[in-house]
Design a protein around this nucleic acid. Structure first.
Length: 671
RNA sequence: GCCGCCUUAGCUCAGAUGGUUAGAGCGAUCGCCUUGUAAGCGAUAGGUCGUCGGUUCGAUUCCGACAGGCGGCUCCA
């Protein structure tokens, strides 16, 4: 995705003699040292990144790392974080430092200021950073022992804590400290040689601040120290930094494009859904046009499940709370379920998951091995009390509809069933135009036994089964340790959308625990009673969220088969209203969603409106068309085809919809 | 839930440093115009300035609480 990911030149290595500075060796070898392709650090034979000022103890071979390479950008961003921290401490003396690592597209630094930063502060900090960058301060590495570091950082309580953690630091904290000796990075005035700022840091860094060509501070926000809500909250400033000003501009453009696709914005513009205050946070209502999207989605997914051998079931939204104790969801999820209500002295709960209710259907009579796998499917409404700060558009709501299935089968059938499910759900996602996937395998965190139930053997077996099936799929598999549900491990499908963002979509979970807790049984061929396993699976995840993701994926320009309005008739003058009404009638007879814009607006205005509503087919008719029994197509990409006979036009549209084509209609496809 | 910011017409946004009648564009309604590929012209209606409480002679403006939203953090069965 990175705009600056250019084809890199074949790795060249440069010999650095013992005691010689890498920078000098590079210079002698004629390696570029300025500009976006210029080296900012070197990689030694062990793959460790080193400052250009590094001088090896013995002869070494190093590889120059360009500013615009992934590693080079990380170094650049890390150095930008230092420049920002220096600016903050100069402007707001007494501000304490947290950590300041590079991240995707940028960097952040955490601070404990005397008061939170304002947008004006960010402007001032950015300006100060500009001065620091322009001054060309040198980054100088200085090894230091623990005691000296403690003395030097006596006022920086967070840094002191990091020193104590250095042997166990991981992830972003390892940016500051790591195994091995501590180092300070001094910012040194290029002219006077005076140390103007310093930070505990592993490095490496740019040679000078001048090698930061393009930086912008994005926002400030709070973040818990060391990522735990039990800790103090620090003020984090996010910035972005790039190897060229053009790369920065391109990045900002991408953000703007992403903002245009925001489903919350498009939901209003396209009149799809809203979140009335009167209803409460995280509770969407779908307007007629959003309702069409929902219906198309639901009808399709329901039919596909039936085709795949699922039985369609239905269960209520509310249940006695005891059911969720039986399943084990309570007390685990007590804080994310809506509070209980007392009905005639009995505690009831809104359901936050469908599995316990499906288990009751399984349990409703004796089951034979001949029935297995038994596949129950439901579009089940569930309610989750998401914390107020996390509710977000359609992607994180408090009331949602899960396309939830539970397959009950023998342990032996499980791998086959999971394989089938994975294949099915990938096909389903492809049907909606999502086709770039990777898988995540969420497993138990052995260090937190209280978060998971069931025996070690069952977990090991279930995890092995999921892993095997995931590997067979040939898709990239990313481990997610600790991400499993309390009852079993999970495969989740991550889909990349049209602009490369990834969304968690489908999940498949293997569960030995709930069948045991519900004492589910089937009678085996030998007459014994056996316990089935159950496989939880959601394909969309939630219908609401899926609509949100699709809206962003298509930027609101839905494929014709999903478009709330598929065809709009636009008369050139009032004269053609009746003519287009007739065309519309014929399209409706083919099951298409058609409108004729017979408003008093000019046709140019009608086109503009249809364009903004992202209608896939505009059928324009004037006198010439009407006389010829034809219409003129305008597609939403602006291309057009004139004088198409009505029958042909109707067939083309009907065909595109029937094929569930996901590509946006355009003149070239038909010409 | 935590930190910060925000809430003015259906939508997008101006505005008054506490003082009689709060503005614009789009949208809506009505009229004129009758039109060939992204905004024709005009008029009219529409707001107890998120809610509740406090300070004040006077609050949409200042303070507080609550609700909702935005950006993060934490969380996400």
């Amino acid at each position: 995705m990175s705009a600056s990911a250019r084809p890199t030149a074949p790795a060249q290595t440069v010999a650095v003699a013992a005691g010689e500075m890498a920078l000098d060796a590079l210079r002698v070898a004629g390696v570029e040292l300025t500009g976006p392709h210029g080296a900012v650090v070197v990689r030694d034979a062990d793959g460790v990144l080193r400052d250009l000022a590094w001088a090896p103890d013995s002869d070494a071979e190093v590889e120059p790392v360009a500013a615009d390479s992934p590693d080079g950008l990380a170094v650049l961003r890390h150095s930008a974080a230092h420049a920002m921290a220096q600016a903050v401490q100069e402007l707001y003396p007494g501000t304490l430092l947290g950590i300041g690592p590079p991240i995707e597209d940028g960097f952040y630094y955490d601070f404990l200021p005397s008061r939170p930063f304002t947008p004006e502060d960010l402007t001032a900090i950015e300006k100060k950073m500009g001065e620091i960058i322009k001054a060309g301060q040198l980054f100088v590495r200085r090894p230091i022992d623990d005691d000296a570091a403690r003395a030097e950082l006596a006022n920086e309580k967070f840094k002191l804590e990091l020193i104590g953690l250095k042997s166990t630091a991981t992830g972003e904290e390892a940016t500051e400290v790591g195994a091995g000796g501590l180092t300070m990075y001094d910012n040194v005035d290029a002219k006077t040689g005076e140390r103007v700022w310093t930070d505990l840091c592993r490095g490496p860094h740019l040679a000078t601040t001048r090698r930061i060509p393009a930086v912008k501070l994005m926002r400030s926000a709070a973040a818990y120290w060391r990522g735990s809500e039990k800790n103090e909250q620090l003020q984090r400033i996010y910035g972005t930094a790039w190897a060229t000003r053009d790369d920065l501009k391109a990045h900002l453009n991408r953000l703007e494009e992403a903002a245009k696709r925001d489903h919350r914005k498009l939901g209003i513009e396209l009149d799809l859904f809203s979140f009335p205050d009167e209803l409460g946070s995280g509770l969407p209502v779908f307007h007629p046009k959003g309702g069409i999207l929902r219906r198309e989605l639901e009808d399709y997914v329901r039919q596909r499940h039936i085709d795949e051998g699922f039985d369609f079931v239905s269960t209520p939204h509310i249940s006695k709370a005891d059911l969720f104790y039986t399943s084990g969801h309570l007390p685990y999820y007590a804080d994310t379920m809506f509070p209980p209500m007392d009905v005639d002295g009995i505690e009831y709960r809104l359901k936050a998951m469908n599995c316990p209710l499906h288990n009751l259907i399984y349990q409703s009579r004796g089951r034979s091995y001949r029935e297995l796998p038994l596949r129950l499917f439901e579009l089940g409404a569930v309610y989750r009390y998401e914390k107020s700060g996390v509710v977000h558009g359609l992607t994180r709501v408090r009331g949602l509809t899960m396309d939830d299935s539970h397959s009950y089968c023998t342990a032996e059938q499980a791998p086959g069933e999971i394989r089938k499910l994975l294949e099915f759900l990938l096909g389903l996602l492809r049907d909606f135009g999502l086709d770039d996937f990777y898988l995540e395998l969420s497993t138990r965190d052995d260090s937190k036994p209280d978060k998971f139930i069931g025996s070690d053997e069952d977990w090991a077996q279930a995890t092995a089964v999921l892993e095997e099936v995931a590997r067979e799929s040939g898709l990239e598999l990313v481990p997610d340790p600790g991400g499993a549900a309390y009852y079993g491990p999970k495969i989740s499908v991550q889909a990349r959308d049209a602009i490369g963002r990834t969304w968690q979509m489908s999940t498949v979970q293997l569960d030995f625990n709930q069948p045991a807790r519900f004492e589910l049984e089937y009678q085996a061929a030998d007459g014994t009673r056996q316990q089935p396993v159950m496989i939880h699976s959601a394909k969309f995840g939630s219908v609401e969220r899926f609509i949100g993701v699709l809206t962003e994926h298509y930027a609101g320009a839905f494929p014709a088969w999903l478009s709330p309005v598929q065809v709009i008739g636009i008369p050139i003058s009032e004269e053609q209203n009746g003519y287009l009404d007739d065309v519309a009638r014929r399209l409706r007879a083919r099951g298409l969603r058609v409108e004729v814009d017979d408003s008093a607006d000019r046709m140019q205005k009608k086109i503009r409106n249809a364009q903004r509503q992202k209608v896939p087919f505009m059928l324009i008719a004037g006198e010439t068309d009407a006389d010829a029994g034809a219409v003129s197509f305008r597609y939403r990409d602006g291309t057009q085809r004139n004088a198409i006979p009505i029958e042909t036009a109707i067939d083309e549209i009907a065909d595109t919809v029937a094929r569930r084509s996901n590509s946006s209609p355009t003149a070239e496809l038909y010409g």
